[in-house]
Amino acid sequence: MIKWWKISSVVLILYTIVWGLIGNVPRLDILNETIRNVYYHVPIWFAMLFQMGYSVVFAVKHLYKNDLKLDIVSNQAAQTGLFFAIPGLLTGCMWAKFTWGTWWTFQDPKLNGVAIAVLIYFSYFILRSSIDDELKRARIAAVYNVFAFVMMLVFIMILPRLTDSLHPGNGGNPAFAKYDMDNNMRMVFYPAVIGWVLLSIWIFDIKKRLAFIEHEENES
């Protein structure tokens, strides 16, 4: 059975890809046509953040209820989030090459924050793989997940406010209003955010169900 939100995710993403490429955008210096990247790059990061947040919520739930299924959910959400980091990084790098003239810079707090987040989730998966006992692994991974996420949050909230950033929408504020977007662009941008987040939920849902089946097979 295909649910309504799965269809709407496909429709919304198709609409944003097509309309994002042929629609009107404001002509701005340096940015030029690259401003269209806001339809792909930003929603993909939103989807990643959504999954990471979901993962932490379920890690906390697991610590309270000690239920292995909650840990599976948390793990799968983290995996989906990390999966979305790859296209997020690639689109960002491509955009940076054409506007800043470089693929990557170490001067920027947002780029550093992303690099650190990806590293943290890599070490999260390494930690998971180094513990054999299921219950113990779930508990320790959840502890690390919560701790790392809070440290990240503090970092993302504070550090960009202290230093200048080349990144659009800088100053630590959420990107929305600061973009040089007009109403034409908003008509594509908001559906794009919803579409990509729904797609991430879809991927996560399939992964979760697969992991549940595997878990039940191991049980019996």
Binding site: N112, G113, I116, I131, Y144
Partner: peptide, 29 residues
Amino acid sequence: IASKANNNISLMAILSFPVLMPLLLVSIK
């Protein structure tokens, strides 16, 4: 955490470096 995961010394570095990085950046600045 590392002591619960078989006391692996390289695991300690893997776990702590990414978490320490935000802190380290503030200290360095």
